[in-house]
Design a protein around this nucleic acid. Structure first.
Lengths: 206, 206
DNA sequence: TGACCACAGATTGTTAACAATTAACATTAA
DNA sequence: TTAATGTTAATTGTTAACAATCTGTGGTCA
């Protein structure tokens, strides 16, 4: 049940690559996305490209006007950020509660792999990559709950506060601190204390 | 600014018609949606059909498996409802705060028009229509803030708890009570007391 | 009988061509 | 010059054909 979907459609693969490019900032805010360009870049036809763009539009990553194509949307104003962040925190804590007592070593492997990549990005001061892995890590916290509904709502929020991630990263004198701040989450999960884990998440996000 | 999009793509039109069919029950839960059937029914090719199905899948109205097509969502009102309802309440209260001191008579006209339609639906015991106007009313509370981001996040949530609306309505012995429960919100807004309005919203959504 | 496999029909995934719309630019007239 | 207009290129919307995948049926063999 709930097969992990071994083979994925082209559209889904492209969604992930485009989302990474945009959330990390490699594709700038306001930039225009042309279907034929993307089709050439990913060596597919426009069908899967349109599929990917529609998905990103619903997530709020890009904005589309009929017959005018898609623009990378500009991040939400800060006042909404203040609303969204606690909501996002609530969702992540809720997700963790769902699977907390079913954790396996595979789960930790996934998270530690992401954090390892984040560490490398920190060491090379690649802030785009840091943001990408930061978001990927938190996304994986939600994904683990295997609830498409939860993930959809979380995505709709996070894509709108992605600038908050990047800007919060810039505050650190030494980027490696960004990596280090994620370690307590994994440690708390390993220790097996639910309340401590939730508290760690809350401290981390705020 | 913010043109109402005069001409809409085939995909969008089909989304609306399919969503109505599903929410009203004309297409039953669990029923399978075949692309060619829908294409014939709407006299278009499979392209716009796939577009519509993808959108409904994101909204949570249908579920799709790769290479297996789409089913009308039957997933019970998961425990996620308990998470989403307070989040939704938070968003609506936040929205109201944004425009509370800029209300005009036009705003009340919009709301009272919706409630009037809801009243008629209550009088004819048309629960599908009651739900439709109930959701429309709350959506208009959010729309008034003129924040596409806020509306998108709210929509992502509400489309996933729409069944909660229907089922909560069924609890009433006399449907007119559903209508009457919305009146205090408008009254509080008219009275001009922000804190009282927010409290009313909270009590209403509970 | 029951498990296994092959095959055919049905269904979705992908592609490329065609149609409709938009945007940019040159042309013309006031 | 500037505004209005016609023309052309670029871009998105739609369609239909082709490829890949799944599902069910029937047969074979132990």
């Amino acid at each position: 049940m709930n097969e992990p979907q071994l083979v994925r459609g082209l559209g889904e693969q492209i969604v992930e690559r485009l989302r990474e490019d945009i959330l990390s900032g490699r594709i700038a805010e306001g930039e225009r996305l042309r279907e034929v360009d993307l089709a050439k870049r990913f060596s597919v036809s426009r069908g899967p490209i349109r599929e990917a763009i529609q998905q990103l539009a619903w997530e709020g990553v890009v904005e589309t006007d009929r017959n005018k194509g898609a623009l990378v949307s500009t991040s939400a104003p800060n006042e909404i950020t203040e609303l969204i962040i606690p909501l996002r925190c609530t969702i992540e804590k809720y997700a963790i509660r769902l699977y907390f007592d079913q954790l396996t070593e595979d789960d930790f492997l996934v998270w530690e792999t992401i954090l390892q990549k984040m560490k490398q990005a920190c060491e090379t001061n690649d802030f785009a990559l840091i943001s990408e892995h930061d978001i990927a890590f938190h996304r994986s916290l939600v994904t683990r709950a295997h609830s498409p509904d939860l993930l959809a709502i979380w995505s709709a929020m996070v894509s709108r506060i992605r600038r908050h991630f990047r800007e919060s990263h810039l505050k650190y004198k030494n980027p490696i601190q960004i990596y280090e701040e994620h370690l307590p989450i994994i440690e708390a999960l390993r220790d097996g204390s639910l309340t401590e884990t939730l508290q760690t998440i809350e401290d981390h996000i705020e």
